[in-house]
Write a protein that binds this DNA or RNA. Structure first.
Lengths: 156, 156
DNA sequence: CGTGAAATTCTTAGATG
DNA sequence: CATCTAAGAATTTCACG
């Protein structure tokens, strides 16, 4: 277990802002929190190296690129053998329609967030990943009508 | 319904890369896809203005900032009245523990992805948003053991 | 779209508390 | 040890062809 890096109030202030906008300049952040641009950049560099900041990414609107539908799929495995779970996890992550893969305890074993161009695309996905897999006992699909909080912001 | 903007192969190439790393330079992208740095930047600017790129954000490791637990919560409302659904949706989005809020059809009405510092924090969350709400018939909690695909990449 | 210049931002170096 | 200022390098933006 890697011990948590020490973050002070400046670090948290910086994280709050870059979670909302990664293109904000060091100068702008510095002016708001009372630090020079160089100090902000140095802290950002450290936060990246420590993997407190895992990545800086562009969020693309799924609808703008033809992915008009989203689904939440809860998957229940036949028997909870570690190698089977790992195999499914790897297959799910490798599938381009899978946006998020949560490995959970409870009624389901996996919760997947899935996008698709249309119903045919989604059906092809279920056949590929779910129907053709004998280790899957059962799965339920929920159609997403709307989503909020696309870019997550953690409470600091 | 806003008509989808026209994207060519260059745009899709650019989107593929900035979804993985928003800090990649225009020059680097240009070298890979055969465009000048200026042309890449021009296209990026257009994709931002068209809201094809919704945002560019830093992804922070929840564990690194003390959010050690994650949950998937499926919420079933008492009666599906539009104003009630909207009210819950707004309350969920406003809650700092809620990372994602999906409004779905199926057995549940909402699927929430929730983070918490510890079990007490999660209990406080359920009381605040769920137990104290008479419009909620039922909810089920799944504890997240692991997650993959933090930064989503859309198939283009 | 590409080129090249101008403006902005990031990085590095040296000095200070 | 982290900060600041200032110089230097890199990136983005802009005007023109």
């Amino acid at each position: 277990m890697p011990e948590s890096p020490v973050l002070d109030d400046f670090d948290r202030d910086i994280l709050r802002r870059v979670q909302l906008d990664a293109r904000i300049t060091g100068e702008e952040i510095g002016a708001e929190i009372g630090l020079s641009a160089a100090a902000v950049q140095r802290r950002l560099k450290r936060l990246r190296e420590l993997k407190v900041i895992i990545a800086e990414v562009a969020i693309v609107d799924p609808k703008a690129v033809g992915q008009t539908m989203s689904f939440v799929v809860a998957v229940e495995m036949e028997r909870e053998r570690a190698d089977m779970l790992d195999a499914f996890r790897a297959a799910a992550c490798a599938d381009s329609n899978v946006q998020h893969c949560y490995y959970v305890t409870g009624v389901a074993d996996f919760i997947l967030i899935v996008v698709a161009r249309d119903m045919d695309d989604f059906e092809a996905f279920t056949r590929r990943l779910l129907f053709d897999n004998p280790n899957i006992r059962h799965f339920t699909t929920s159609v997403v009508m709307g989503r909020d909080k696309a870019g997550q912001v953690l409470p600091l």
